[in-house]
């Protein structure tokens, strides 16, 4: 039956239910990941951002909030050019981080 509107699933994040086991594994080999202060420098310098919306800032945040599907989907647009590593003020080796994310989360990644 069509009521003229749809119920979409809640977009709220419930931190009690987030499974962070893979994030903790990632954190083990990339301890710098939680130094990210969400400044957005990586995103604004990313050449893939303009045409795909790629944002490493969002990827890092999504992983910490258990939104792995969204994070990995976005990461497919990365070209591994490494520009983000050059601009990160917290000195995170973001290119290396991206490779580690792919290794840990994505057998079916890129």
């Amino acid at each position: 039956m069509d009521f003229g509107f749809k119920l979409s699933p809640s977009s709220a994040i419930n931190l009690d239910k987030v499974d962070l086991s893979r994030f903790e594994k990632l954190h083990g080999i990339e301890p710098d990941i939680i130094k990210c202060m969400a400044c957005g420098s990586c995103t604004s310098s990313c050449p893939a951002n303009r045409f795909s919306g790629m944002s490493l800032r969002k990827v890092i945040l999504d992983l910490q909030r258990g939104r792995e599907k969204e994070a990995l989907g976005m990461l497919r647009n990365c070209m591994l050019c490494g520009k983000c590593t050059m601009v990160c003020p917290r000195g995170i080796n973001t290119r290396h981080l991206i490779l580690s994310i792919c290794r840990i989360y994505g057998e079916d990644g890129k």
């Binding site: 709220a12 994040i13 800032r57 969002k58 945040l61 909030r65 939104r67």
Partner: peptide, 12 residues
């Protein structure tokens, strides 16, 4: 609100 992701967040 987790303002960086624009989503409501809840924790116990």
């Amino acid at each position: 609100e987790d303002t960086l992701s624009g989503k409501p967040v809840k924790v116990t």
